[in-house]
Computed example of a mutant assay.
Amino acid sequence: MTTTHSLINQLIQLQELVVANMQKKVSMPNARLEELGKSIELLSADLPQQVRSHFNRLVQKHPEAIVPVANELCTGCGMGLTKSMVQSVHKAEDLNRCPNCARFLYYPEQLISRERVSRSYGAVRKKGVSRFTSPELMMVSLKGTTPEEVLGEICSRMAEENFVDDGAHLLDLALQREAIISTAVDNSLAFPHVRGVEGGGLSMAVGIHKKGVKFGGPGRTLTRIFFFVVIPTATSAFYLKLISGLSRTFREKGASEALLAAATEEELWKALIKATKKTFK
């Protein structure tokens, strides 16, 4: 592996830690994040000074400092790239930056693709949380006993409903993300996700595990409610607002119990819409 490849992988991992830190802050306001902060400092310290400085400037503006190239576009800002730039990113002999937004660029082996056109459900304009999810993505009885099994069920549903084109690859990316730091938080909630998805908008599946499963979260709390989100690069900033709103809403015992009490996917959908009515306009 070349030095540039190693540097790119280091930047991607650092970015995941930075975003994880942001997520924990919005979903667990009182959490102690010293260990996560130390991991960020240690990984940052190994970067060349010029790269580290530019990375830090970028993350002050938006969550994504290094983004994939897809269809000859910077997925961060959408600018078209020259063929020579794309070839340079693909070769990874040097560290490239988008000439428009200045984000670092990398060429992924495979991107998760999803529909580029928003799905439409009837003639009524979608509002609230229904802009990001649908009744087809409600799962009221997850059966898995491990994180991999639970996430596998959710990823399969997203593929079956044509929200992504490759459920198995989506699962691999979700597990890679969980390996960095668990997305489980207090109140039996977890926010597993995959970022950098190509095409379409942000989409969320909601899964309920009645018994609960150990998901690597704080203490010995079992996770029972899963909000799984696929996030195109352009919507990464909004993802944090979504997590913050969901976390505030479902910290309330009554709101989370309403989801857990749902016996059908239709009931789960109605409970989700009702609980988030004031959170998402």
Rank of each mutant, 00 (worst) to 15 (best):
Q13T: 13
Q23Y: 02
E35A: 14
L36E: 05
G37V: 12
G37D: 12
S39Q: 15
E41M: 11
L43K: 15
D46Q: 14
D46Y: 04
Q50E: 15
N56E: 15
A65F: 11
A70C: 13
E72R: 13
G78M: 08
V86E: 02
V89T: 08
A92P: 11
N96S: 13
P99A: 06
R103G: 07
R114K: 13
E115Q: 10
G122S: 05
K127C: 04
K127W: 12
G128C: 03
V129W: 06
V140H: 04
L142E: 00
K143N: 09
E149A: 14
E160N: 11
H169A: 08
L170W: 02
L173R: 02
Q176R: 15
T183C: 01
S188V: 13
F191W: 12
R195H: 03
G196Q: 05
S203G: 06
V206S: 03
V206W: 05
I208L: 14
H209F: 10
L222H: 02
T223S: 09
R224H: 04
F228A: 06
V229Y: 01
I231D: 01
S236A: 15
L246M: 04
A255E: 12
S256C: 00
S256Q: 09
L260C: 08
A261G: 04
W269N: 03
K270W: 06
A271Y: 03
A275G: 09
A275T: 13
